[in-house]
């Protein structure tokens, strides 16, 4: 139990976020109204996704350096849970956009580049399925993963900031900086980042352990 403290922390934080997210007062601006509360659940999806995909690419590079298959198992588990969180972030964004932007999928740069980034990562998971040789699969997909991560950051973070977009954090609209975010939002949002990221890491460790058990005849130790 002693080393599981962060799982308990994650659950407690998320309960706080769910209850606090509905109860704290939020600024009612424009047509966002109470839908502004979606931020407590939409944004942490991306934070969890970035964390997991970073874990994935670090393990891929580590695999290329050591040829240790356990690293490849870690990389693939982290990528698949990362994609799960990315898809959840995209779906919640779609719902939010429907009632504030006036369209589920609009020609908004951030939405489109994020869709491309997610498609690239889904291709990583498909690529993994296409190999029968486990070492070849590990090496080729590790290299692909490095390329995918090199595209993820510009596509989802840098390009949307240089062009006009309906999404906050673009060239013409404010991001979530310290100065223009209400205190009550920050009070719930920061714990939400940590809580959802820890939840994502928990699911990733479960998947990783399951994969290692499934491959225990091939991978030793």
């Amino acid at each position: 139990m002693a080393k599981n403290w962060w799982k308990i922390l994650s659950v407690l934080l998320l309960l706080y976020v769910i209850i606090g997210g509905f109860m704290v007062p939020v600024p009612v601006i424009g047509n966002n109204q109470q839908a502004a509360r979606s931020i407590f659940f939409h944004l942490p999806m991306w934070m969890a996704m970035y964390t997991l995909l970073t874990i994935s690419v670090v393990n891929s590079v580590w695999y290329l350096a050591t040829n240790d298959l356990r690293r490849d198992v870690r990389a693939s588990s982290a990528a698949s849970v990362g994609v799960l969180f990315g898809v959840m972030g995209f779906l919640t964004g779609m719902l939010w956009a429907t009632y504030t932007w006036g369209g589920t999928i609009v020609n908004d740069p951030k939405q489109m580049t994020t869709a491309i980034a997610l498609a690239i990562y889904m291709a990583y998971l498909v690529l993994r399925m296409s190999f029968t040789d486990i070492d070849k699969r590990a090496r080729v997909s590790a290299i692909y993963n490095v390329f995918a991560f090199a595209l993820l950051i510009p596509l989802t973070y840098i390009i949307p900031r240089t062009v006009d977009s309906l999404h906050p954090g673009s060239a013409s609209s404010p991001g979530f900086s310290d100065k223009d975010t209400a205190g009550t939002i920050k009070m719930v949002l920061w714990p939400a980042f940590l809580g959802f990221t820890l939840l994502g890491i928990w699911i990733y460790t479960l998947r990783n352990r399951y994969k290692r058990l499934a491959l225990k005849n091939i991978i030793h130790g």
Binding site: L14, L15, I18, I19, G21, F22, M23
Partner: peptide, 11 residues
């Protein structure tokens, strides 16, 4: 808050 309760149950 009914919706909040539903989220708590699901979570």
């Amino acid at each position: 808050y009914v919706a909040m309760g539903i989220l708590v149950i699901i979570f």
